[in-house]
Nucleic acid binder design. Structure first.
Lengths: 235, 235
DNA sequence: GCGGCGGTTTGCGCCAGCGCAAACCCGGCT
DNA sequence: AGCCGGGTTTGCGCTGGCGCAAACCGCCGC
């Protein structure tokens, strides 16, 4: 299930947290990192756990979801290679605020609170990067919040897949493919609607040739038309 | 409309951004700050403006709201004395992502990007505080996002007023009063519903004696019962 | 005192989208 | 091949709450 593996400095260099750092800093970061490997659909941490660490995905993908005291849950975001996750908790109450589950086989690295503080005080750029990452994420969540209360379901679903394509898409012969497998449920939970509603829109769009979904994998064929749906019109 | 004023080091010491700093640091921060005074309902900055600064409210209150390319707008948050605002933009794209308008007569301080960087490199604790503030705010917005897509309107309105009471409430003889004036529209925009719906719930609750609203000012009388509405039940 | 204006309340009709239920599809395992 | 189980599609009825419109209220300035 979870196995320790080695981690290369080149992997570290690709992480957003260590952007723009000198090689010696990357070496330090690599030395302090704990690297692990997880099979698909494996839980990395759970909401409420303590002993938090700062994580980053090297390869694969992770779903970060949050459940309320009532039943309802949402997907906070998906983590693509190079992105960090679970790090905000270090600076607030020291408990993970969400669940993290792998979408596919995944390699990740993580740092303890003490080691990250050490890195941040030795290389202030790490703190700046951290602020930048969290700041961008804050803006993104604020955008989603605005969308959630002002746009209709179709627009939100469209926006969600566009964002995913932007974040984790790679071009193929027939369009932009999203880098990790997604169930309808996942799409619903990240666009703030229900399984049923998300399914209806996606299949409608698939019939129109705007996208295709081949077992858990979405490919956007006509992104501009999806963009159209996202910004102005219903259906 | 906007007048320059002097600022006392004790005002600086009360800001969340400079929590836990030595007196000399507070003196530096005060020396670099630009302090101003605004009348009520005055715009401090607008969405899209450049030349961003990091702001903090000394006294009064500010409404931060965001408008989409479509008409819809939401209130991102209200800023109470001691809190900072407009600072995230420094680390992302250098443009204010929202509008800031005073709710009442307000004193604020602000720092330029260069000066803030200077302070952060001289006193690393400032950077840590910044991460803590943004991190907490990220968690709060994520909570609101989850509520927006899983709870009904009544619960969201209840949560919104509770959050405001927690953030800017002061106890009075007949309950917790929220520190700045709020129109129904404001309450609606922060709970992700409409003016009409927010009004309906608030007047229902007022008739039941859970709260009173005396010209723009809300006072929560029976917070525990409002809490009740927020967590389990409809109506 | 009076008019006007910004904000609030409330009646009413309508529809987006929720969510149950049942059928269906597909990939993996035996 | 055939079965099983998770995921998906789709029909259908119901309702929360949106949003127009109109009345109402109270503060402020003249």
């Amino acid at each position: 299930m979870a196995g320790d593996i080695v981690i290369a400095p080149t992997d570290i260099a690709a992480l957003e947290l260590f952007r723009g750092l000198p090689p010696t800093a990357l070496g330090d970061a690599a030395a302090l990192a704990r690297a692990r490997h997880f099979a698909r659909e494996t839980r990395i941490f759970s909401q409420g756990d303590d002993g938090v660490r700062a994580h980053a995905v090297i390869a694969g993908g992770v779903r970060i979801s949050q459940a309320g005291s009532d039943g309802g849950q949402i997907v906070v975001r998906f983590i693509a290679p190079g992105e960090m996750f679970g790090a905000v908790a270090l600076f607030t109450n020291g408990r993970y605020p969400a669940d993290a589950v792998t979408l596919a086989a995944t390699r990740e690295a993580s740092w303890s609170e003490a080691d990250l503080h050490e890195l941040m005080s030795r290389y202030p750029q790490v703190a700046i990067n951290m602020i930048r990452v969290i700041g961008r994420r804050l803006q993104e969540v604020q955008d989603r919040l605005r969308e959630a209360s002002t746009q209709r379901a179709a627009q939100r679903v469209a926006r969600a897949v566009l964002r995913l394509a932007q974040q984790a898409g790679h071009d193929t012969s027939d369009g932009t493919a999203i880098g990790f497998p997604l169930r309808r449920r996942d799409v619903a939970d990240i666009s703030g609607t229900t399984l049923y509603t998300a399914s209806r829109f996606l299949t409608t769009w698939e019939k129109r040739g705007l996208l295709v979904s081949r077992n858990r994998h979405l490919v956007l064929c006509r992104a501009s038309e999806i963009q159209q749906i996202a910004e102005d019109a219903p259906d």
